[in-house]
Write a protein that binds this DNA or RNA. Sequence first.
DNA 1: GTAAATGCAAAGCTTTTGCAGTGAG
DNA 2: CTCACTGCAAAAGCTTTGCATTTAC
Lengths: 149, 149
Amino acid sequence: VLQLSCGERLESELRQAGFRVTPQRAVILESISHLKGHRSAQEVFDSAVARLPGLNIATVYRTLDTLHQAGIIDLFPAGPNSILFSLRDEANKHGHLLCRNCARVLKVDPAYFKALAETMRNTYAFKVDCEHLTLQGICEACRTELSED
Amino acid sequence: VLQLSCGERLESELRQAGFRVTPQRAVILESISHLKGHRSAQEVFDSAVARLPGLNIATVYRTLDTLHQAGIIDLFPAGPNSILFSLRDEANKHGHLLCRNCARVLKVDPAYFKALAETMRNTYAFKVDCEHLTLQGICEACRTELSED
DNA sequence: GTAAATGCAAAGCTTTTGCAGTGAG
DNA sequence: CTCACTGCAAAAGCTTTGCATTTAC
């Protein structure tokens, strides 16, 4: 097996999902794989346009949709007027703790969600997405600042 | 103690929180208390403008913000370009199961979240909002339709 | 060669804001 | 009487779409 770069591996996944690999998509993939964490379409665009001047943000939106269809990225809602994207990382699945005050995001081991997911499935016949779950609440710093209990 | 209508009780809460009770706010409160479940600003507006022609949607947004500050309604993000609002109901606190396919919302007894919240607090020093938590996943109907496992 | 993808510009949708006028307390 | 609130209209974000052109396969 040949050693592939991160971007090359993703291009291969994209092709296997039946999509074409264009320079724009390659650059966007590279950008996403270098931008750690959860990013907005605008952040992806800012990073990608630096490598490929002339890139249009509409292409970024269309590509993010394509990558989602291809199962390469995940997306999760983060309040009004914002979707965040992140590379799907099978080896490092995680949930999120989103602070409603400062909007910081902590990663959570999804193993903690297993028991709850099982209960939801049994009780409500609902299959919770453990691998990319987001729980809202308040982080330690903000809790101190707001003196919530 | 006098018997107050649902709307009157809420007006009283609003006044006690230091806000003025205007006809617009009264109508919006009435609408919210009659619209069960989780509604968008647009839905609240549609319902309220029928009772008070001339009402402006900007007023609805400002009022929803006011009601949130007054602790009368809760809001939760539901994807891009949408916040949903619902009456805060102390006697009937609940979480949500949001289907990522059909966007239907199931109510959940928040008691199920207690154990997880405790774990998150101990492990990540993060205080999860159990009373208005939303878990994404896939509902029974959609699971069958999409034949997901 | 052909269907898919892109750039561009325009529109769509939800939400916010500035400001002058109105009205609740 | 005063300050909070409203309507209106305009703008601000984020995202989507139509269409002619380009390009991966």
